[in-house]
Write a protein that binds this DNA or RNA. Sequence first.
DNA 1: CTGTTAGCGCCTTCAG
DNA 2: CTGAAGGCGCTAACAG
Lengths: 270, 270
Amino acid sequence: MVQQAQSTLGDVAKAAGVSLATASRVLNGTASVGPALRDRVKRAAERLAYSPNAHAQALARSSSRTVGVICHDVGDPYFAGIARGVMRAANRHDLQVVLGSTFRDPDREAAYTSMMRGHRVCAMLLIGSGFEDRERQEGLRRELDRYRATGGRVAVISRHRGLRADAVLPENREGAADLARALLGLGHRRFAVLSGPPLLSTVVDRVEGFLEALADAGVTVEREDIVEAPSPVTAVTRPLSGSSAAVCAPPASSPRPTSWPRVRSRPCAT
Amino acid sequence: MVQQAQSTLGDVAKAAGVSLATASRVLNGTASVGPALRDRVKRAAERLAYSPNAHAQALARSSSRTVGVICHDVGDPYFAGIARGVMRAANRHDLQVVLGSTFRDPDREAAYTSMMRGHRVCAMLLIGSGFEDRERQEGLRRELDRYRATGGRVAVISRHRGLRADAVLPENREGAADLARALLGLGHRRFAVLSGPPLLSTVVDRVEGFLEALADAGVTVEREDIVEAPSPVTAVTRPLSGSSAAVCAPPASSPRPTSWPRVRSRPCAT
DNA sequence: CTGTTAGCGCCTTCAG
DNA sequence: CTGAAGGCGCTAACAG
């Protein structure tokens, strides 16, 4: 099979015997064009199997209707569920979506953000726990600030540490504290904590909230009774989210108890 | 906050006191540049928070490392799982992914394919059952053929009807037939079929396979005993895949029995 | 209404 | 090793 070249607007215009501008106009409905010409253009476009080059358009218009979505892992039901909502919204608003799965690698996350900045996405959505990594976190903040400085919008879910952005935040710390208090109320006094990888902020938050609430009641947990699962639990049919092994908060992907998680929506001052 | 303009390669070049070409070269590592200039360019780029415009690049290079993925619904564990694998592969090969969820709307599917053609993705992946719709199916075929004619690669999962493309195909018909025979072997003689929406090819295939196997044994199913769930079953915590209500094949998202599904991988002659 | 003409931001020969 | 210039495909003023 021969690799034909994609036909361009110029080709269409020529084939229709009109100017480039006219062709562009009818194909975009930008301005009214005589029925005769319009018809010829449309016919030519169809005949040449014309498909407007989105890059050229984006460049010429210097804008594009695409948003970037970055999550830890679309395969995770938690993220998949959110992604689903994003896709529905995208459909509704006729937006394109470029997706990134970091697989919980902070470097990959950084790579994605800059790649999306390069793509000039009009908005960026970061979903999932941040990382406990001073330097990288700082780098991310800078990158996002640059992005916002040139008109980009960024929103985050479940991460807040030093990111100036619209955010929806599950109250991990509070939720874990509630759990601790509930357990205390039941009369328990000795605890062990099975937590997730401590490089995830959400994990740290939950453990801290849990321990603090205990501490307030004069209960302490032995260091050795806090065990950290090095990575998401995968010994199940479907991978669970990063912190699913944390006993101090239900897995994000489990059915949401009536009162959990409490979510705080924090708009970002522009 | 003021909406600053993104700085361009030109800006960087000017700030570094070099030509556009040189700036381009150091930023792309395309050719060797004197250490002095190289340093000035890099510094300028950093200072200006330069981010190469991907669209401009794609246009100039007339190529881009992005692939398109279209599925029925990323929120569905079945598709989420596949998407996960796609993302991993994309990461490995440094490919960008633009994602589409059709929510089982054939029109939206068509919109996505042409949108991705416009984006000049280097490959397109269609995941999930096709639709039983002569006309639309034909339209899709034409669109994909045009895409392939200009160098595009297309692969499909779980759909075959008249699409010339690399494919991995679960053997719905055969699997359903197997099930029927197994049931017959158990001594059953009266059947009812709870199936999915009949506009999905996979559903039709399964039902047909099931009924045919029964027919071969001289067993028929009353028309009224074949009930079609109009849409995917959603009365569960997580949405199941389109055909999950079909009794003649396990839901795609359920743990895979040792011997199911049988998958056929059909490479596409180029 | 229709055509001409600049760019959009970057890459890439082609000379020097 | 470095710079100048043409072009990628399309849009958006401007003139007719």
